[in-house]
Amino acid sequence: MTPEQISRRLQDRFADAVRAADASGLHPHAVVEPGRWVEVARFLRDDADLAMDFLRSISGVDYPEDGKLVSVYDLISTRHGHAFAIKVEAPRDNPHTPSVCDVWPAADWHEREAFDLLGIVYDGHPRLTRILLPDDWAGYPLRKDYEFPREYHGIPCSTETNQERPLH
């Protein structure tokens, strides 16, 4: 299926849950309502025409101007070869997104990573702990307003990154 067809199919099936969709760009995707996300995910995986059985990646993206933390799910079907992405948005001040570990076990470490680096809380994840950073690390480095610590357990950290973007 083409991205347009996938997008149409999702909107036909979940008219109230799938919002503004960009199906023609370089990164065809649809935006899904957090409350219905697990249901949509199951449909994406189980529907015979879609068969999105392979979760490639979950990327958290911070948009402070919009007050949003977005989880980007890149999916591909090993049966049909078509790819599509889903975005689920969470408010920045209370970032909760349902976990899709039950749908794609692959989401396990990806969600932990997005929690670790961006602080998105995936409700229903069996073991949502930091994965790359130490457990006692403060803050979420990939947020745009992250302030690099000056020291960690007595180890001095570089303050070079406290400069304002862009460095170049």
């Binding site: 680096l117 790359l132 950073l133 480095p141 990939l142 992250y146 990154t161 973007r165 862009p166 460095l167 170049h168």
Partner: peptide
Amino acid sequence: HRCAEKIGENL
């Protein structure tokens, strides 16, 4: 871990 993705946002 050296947060290569953060580095990527600065280069």
